[in-house]
Design a protein around this nucleic acid. Structure first.
Lengths: 116, 116
DNA sequence: CGGCATCCAAGTAGATACTG
DNA sequence: CAGTATCTACTTGGATGCCG
């Protein structure tokens, strides 16, 4: 977590504060899928193709530190951990939906294509 | 620009495609301020306190490559360059506003404070 | 004014192996 | 299952100086 002093006085900083929270490499995807309900570590790892456990955990921990998701550990064997959105996290719903919609459109319109 | 192959099949990838575009260190701020009209390089540098010219230019170039902003060079002395949003860039307006609003709220609610 | 080139430091992500 | 540890590679960003 970067508690960067500069957010204090830059005009438009709230934009960056927001992006700082959801802009991590997989955070948007994780949050988006959490809109549909609780997820387990294993599901995230299937989602984040190519990402190492290290990174997945890091993204999840940061979201947790930011109070957007909750991590619930069950004392069972085998271990079970569930991640879910907090109310703060749920407040991102309209934004995540908008981003998803815009991204979808943009993939078609963007000036470059994959495999070029 | 990273034309990352993985966007092709990951569910929720449109979220990341969108974040990939606006998630750069200063891109959100730049885009947000461009909503109010054209900006010049000098204005960006005042906005991005502590950022090196190198980074500022890089962010602007990437936004340009992504077709979100337009760079207009006037052949005058001293040089004058104006940046403005393309129609694609303008389509981000509701999202940028939402992000700004959410970020504003979140700055008050977030679990940590500055200068801690 | 509005950059670019070069070099270097630091942070970030990946690979791999291992564990409670 | 749900991670941790370690080590390495890569990317990103800052500093500085120069140019049209």
């Amino acid at each position: 977590m970067k508690k960067d002093k500069r957010w204090e006085r830059i005009p438009g900083c709230s934009i960056e504060a927001a992006l700082n929270v959801i802009g991590g490499k997989w955070k948007g995807v994780f949050l988006f899928h959490l809109l549909d309900g609780t997820m387990r570590y294993n599901e995230f790892s299937k989602l984040a193709v190519g990402a190492s456990p290290r990174l997945i955990v890091k993204q999840l921990r940061e979201l947790e530190e930011d109070g957007l998701i909750e991590r619930k550990v069950y004392a069972v064997v085998p271990p079970k951990v569930e991640y879910s959105l907090t109310s703060e996290g749920k407040s991102l719903k309209p934004i995540l939906k908008s981003l998803s919609g815009w991204g979808d459109q943009w993939i078609d319109k963007r000036p470059w294509t994959l495999n070029e």
